[in-house]
């Protein structure tokens, strides 16, 4: 019986890094995928691609993204706001959504993602709607150049 409780040889105290690297990589991939899925909820549009570009990454805690969707001819077909599509004639619904967000947080920033083929007056109308609500920070979204 005494033999069963005999201590074996001392174990190595070296830490095995392989599983840790595995876990770190899996977490990294997980977050990259999550970020991609959240951006996929937004409608895919052809963004303006200025070169050289002054576009940069901006971080804001409260952002409202409005996407302007248009057809091949550049005719406005819909707006997308908070994952919801609204028709081009329903500008009052858009204004209401803006007002609700502004009431919740006056420092809210609006990102305008407009298809490059759309008419520029759409952006003007959206900027006017933002200004009427009281929102001051409006960013234009552009595609970043590929490195």
């Amino acid at each position: 019986m005494r033999g069963h409780f005999r201590r074996g040889p001392p174990r190595s105290l070296l830490i095995n890094l392989t599983p840790m690297i595995d876990v770190v990589f899996l977490l990294l991939i997980f977050f990259v995928l999550i970020a991609q899925f959240s951006s996929r909820q937004r409608a895919q549009v052809q963004l303006p691609r200025p070169q050289p570009s002054a576009a940069k990454y901006l971080y804001s805690s409260d952002v409202l993204t409005i996407t302007v969707i248009c057809d091949q001819q550049g005719t406005l077909s819909a707006y997308q706001i908070e994952g919801r599509e609204i028709g081009p004639e329903q500008i009052d619904v858009l204004a209401h959504a803006l007002a609700v967000r502004y009431k919740a947080n006056p420092q809210v920033e609006v990102n305008l993602r407009a298809d490059r083929r759309a008419d520029g007056k759409v952006i003007e109308a959206l900027m006017a709607a933002c200004a009427r609500t009281g929102i001051r920070h409006v960013n234009l979204v552009a595609a970043m150049p590929q490195e």
Partner: peptide, 24 residues
Amino acid sequence: NLLIFFVVITTASQREGFLPGDLP
């Protein structure tokens, strides 16, 4: 894991940047 990581990175959608503006 490295292979999957680089596949995910390269298939990422177009990167978007912002041109900031303040309304009067």
